[in-house]
Design a protein around this nucleic acid. Structure first.
Lengths: 380, 380
DNA sequence: GTTGATTTGTTCATTTTCTGAACTTAGTGT
DNA sequence: ACACTAAGTTCAGAAAATGAACAAATCAAC
């Protein structure tokens, strides 16, 4: 369906998805086209059901009519391979989740493809036009993905090496499929559906059992030369520090990930299932808890400060699933960022904290499919 | 002159400047145009004197003829405001330096504009067609420059705050003028004229009295949200370390810049005018010299390792004016990079060392003008 | 109210740009 | 000398964008 759009039509879809609803005149200016050309392109896209007219904006002169993407012109399926069972969601172009189900996780690509094929019909049944308008499947996983978003180059969690997962699923289901690293998928969903819509360059730091990070640069996901951009978790934060599972020492992952915080707590004899537990201990004055949170927060703050110094992003978005960010940990993180960023910049880079729910990964996965639908593989 | 090129013509110029000489068929494929369209566009550009035919490549079938930019279709002037007197060079589209002269440095933009206007005629006289084909002036300076490459937002060295230098010079000389941060200018010249031509994403780290850094990402200079991308010099490398002139502590600048190395040497009673001096001391076993070089090298290596982890560039190009990089310092830098990069990546990111001469900044400045001529301000 | 100013969006003839197909050109391989 | 291959050209026709005139929908002012 996307293939039958002309290049101008695709450009238009792209700027609307980036800038939100726009009038025809605004779009003409943004694309450098004449009003006459715009008029035709907009009409065609409305006829195709891709665009629709929304609010009317009154000013001096004839009011302008904003055009927006029709949320139900395309549907996407997103699957997260980070949990077992693997969540599987159906959502529309606005990122609205329409249906949710789960499938068994497997390490065998063929079995995954089979499970998806089996799960699809019941998922698509939840909306009358989802089946015919299904435009892509997205998959989020922990690991490295190549630039075609088709092959998983390496995944420790899944024990994969050069697995052409997207191709296998594409062949099995007949639906366009793309895979992506978990953190990068979250960044794309924040750009497409979330709070970073209008920001061209930003970084997402996702805090969970591990620490993920991904960058948008000049409006595009930057994947890095080997797909490894954003591997902040293995920045050395404490030179000569504790050994990390990656083989080196003092990685951010050994200090500030939830996994590390839990382990350090356990070593100190503290009960810690979630961040709140140790925050509670700290608030009652437990020295060990305070020490752990301080160390973790300073580490994460330093890493983010380095990121700011190196890339000067327009926003740092910290996403977390754990309890809260208002306690000692969050405070220390913010302080550490402040003290390690060039004073000229301190406070200049907005830091936004966002608590996310269990749907992040699946929704991120769906956004990968949506992104490929909206922007397409080619950057023409 | 550039203004009269059509958008297709400009696209073609851009891909040749990025990929080097190409045959018409190759260009047609890269741009997604038909051979017929290419034929016409190429003919027009050859008639305009922008392109010319170079080697003929024999294979099966009719041989293909590579087209390249005509080096003398445009000339550029580059000026470095980093030294007094300020070097001023004339170069062609290949970055070949045709003439060199100098002008007095000033902190008054009007005086600078005046000095340039006075210096231009004699510089342009050195080549018969330079005057009529002068296509831009580029200026490199130490400080922050806005995204239009026209205003200097802030420069400590020149004691400037929001100085519209490019506009002033443009008005005074009537020539298109762009300014840029020194490190970013070097990155552009390496992409355009240097050893990073074919690499889409890379970072340049320039080591001198200070430490500069700039990134190319997906074929474009990434300036950062406030023009501050690459301010690696003020990454915290030694938490709680020595105070830096920026106001914080333990910045890379206080450990690994030539300025820092020289100061540390002096504090230890060692004579140190250039890096070679202290390298010599170290090679004779002087413990203090070894300690200083170790500390400086580890710091720089750690910072570069962080950069690799965060951005996964396709190349790190370290430029330096000082003596050599084969001694202890260079060895320690490389070791520190190795030990602080995720083992999976270690050795995957090429590190290239390049000794540069005194023309770097002026040539970098000229490349900024060339870049604006070739790519244009608009990314259409 | 009515009128004028103002800006959005449409229509249509014209121009610009690109394509497809046939063709020419300049080689290689046998 | 002969077919074979691929590069590049030509040209008629299709596609896309433009400019200018115009219709539409509002505000502001009298």
């Amino acid at each position: 369906m996307n293939a039958l759009l002309t290049s101008s039509q695709r450009q238009l879809v792209r700027i609307i998805s980036e800038s939100g609803p726009l009038s025809r005149t605004e779009m003409a200016n943004l694309l450098g086209l004449s009003k006459a050309a715009m008029s035709g392109i907009a009409r065609d896209l409305i006829d195709l059901g891709v665009l629709h007219e929304t609010e009317t904006v009154y000013g001096q002169g004839r009011p302008s009519v904003r055009l927006d993407l029709h949320p139900e012109c395309a549907f996407f399926v997103g699957i997260s391979l980070l949990e077992d069972p693997a969540p599987m969601i159906l959502c529309d172009l606005n990122g609205k989740i329409i249906a949710r189900q789960a499938m068994p996780l497997s390490r065998d690509p063929q079995v995954i493809a089979e499970a998806i094929t089996e799960g699809l019909p019941s998922l698509l049944e939840t909306h009358p036009s989802a089946k015919e308008k299904l435009s892509g499947i997205g998959i989020a996983l922990s690991g490295f993905v190549d630039e075609t978003q088709s092959n998983c180059v390496q995944s420790t969690l899944l024990n994969w090496q050069d697995v052409p997962l997207a191709k296998i699923i594409r062949e099995r289901t007949g639906v366009e499929t793309f895979i992506e690293n978990d953190a990068k998928a979250v960044a794309v969903s924040e750009k497409l559906f979330g709070s970073a819509r209008e920001i061209q360059s930003f970084s997402v730091v996702s805090l969970g059992d591990g620490i993920g990070c991904a960058h948008f640069i000049d409006g595009k996901l930057y994947r890095g030369n080997h797909g490894g951009a954003g591997e902040i978790a293995h920045c050395t934060i404490e030179p000569g520090g504790s050994p990390c599972r990656c083989g080196k020492r003092g990685c951010l992952d050994t200090v500030s990930s939830m996994k590390a915080i839990k382990e350090m707590s356990r070593a100190e004899g503290l009960e810690c299932v979630s961040l709140s537990d140790i925050e509670n201990e700290a608030s009652t004055g437990n020295a060990a808890a305070i020490r752990i949170l301080h160390r973790a927060g300073s580490g994460l703050g330093l890493a983010i400060a380095n990121l700011i110094q190196i890339n000067d992003p327009g926003l740092i978005l910290i996403t977390h699933v754990e309890g809260s960010f208002d306690g000692l940990f969050g405070t220390v993180v913010n302080q550490a960022i402040e003290t390690n960023v060039l004073p000229r910049y301190a406070g200049q880079t907005p830091i936004r904290i966002k608590r996310v729910d269990g749907d992040v990964w699946a929704r991120g996965a769906a956004s990968i499919a949506a992104h490929n639908f909206l922007i397409g593989p080619n950057t023409n």
